[in-house]
Design a protein around this nucleic acid. Structure first.
Lengths: 109, 109
DNA sequence: GTTTTATTTGGCTAATTTGCCAATTATGAA
DNA sequence: TTCATAATTGGCAAATTAGCCAAATAAAAC
């Protein structure tokens, strides 16, 4: 079934867009409110072109949107649940820390 | 703050482990119950060594665990919330489909 | 119009990931 | 012990991703 494969492909592209330390930082930061490229660049400490490219990856995946005000572009989350969603990742991390447990129950995700 | 950076790094590694079509398929499939490497290999249609490597990526990230029975190794999810978690990804996909909407509300994640 | 500030895009190299094949390990059966 | 089955590991080439610099675009200030 070709349909099903495409579905996993698209899903994986959204996940891949999130799967980078700087992009996770951006997601967390803009979940607190709109931020412009230069603010994020200062916080991340990479080249502005690098940060701009990270933002375009997130935008292409549909995770963020932007708004232009003069020469400044503000980014914000497009889908509200993204942050709650991180709780599940954190449950995996917690489970990894306590490696003696096998099956981990969790909530809030 | 070095601590915070490490945190994003680890989070991104868990997400990266999930961000592949075959690995997403595996996650969904074993969420229904234990599956051995050969069963998953038949379903995916890739070389068994490829599937084995995908499983080791998921295992290393703490997403799955395994159980040996004779020569067969059964894999299962290690963290229960992983599947609910996919709902949020699907909300992003839905939002991408209806591109005229900007901020998307969602639940169940 | 020219300059300044904010951001994006192109191009390049380095690093990482993917997937196959061949070889290896491990267990159970003959 | 030898053979067969299940799975993992090593190694390699192809594809993708990351991050920097330089150049281009866009809007506002002078």
């Amino acid at each position: 079934m070709k349909r099903k494969e495409d579905y996993y492909k698209i899903r994986s592209e959204i996940l891949k867009a999130m799967a980078h330390p700087s992009r996770l930082f951006i997601i967390e930061e803009i979940s607190k409110g709109e931020r412009c490229v230069c603010e994020l660049t200062d916080m991340i400490g990479a080249d502005i072109s690098t940060v701009s490219k990270h933002l375009s990856v997130l935008k292409k995946a549909g995770i963020v949107t932007d708004r232009k005000q003069g020469t400044t572009i503000f980014y914000r989350l497009r889908v509200e649940c993204i942050m709650d969603f991180m709780n599940c990742i954190d449950n995996v991390m917690k489970a990894n820390a306590e490696t003696n447990i096998n099956a981990v129950k969790c909530c809030k995700c």
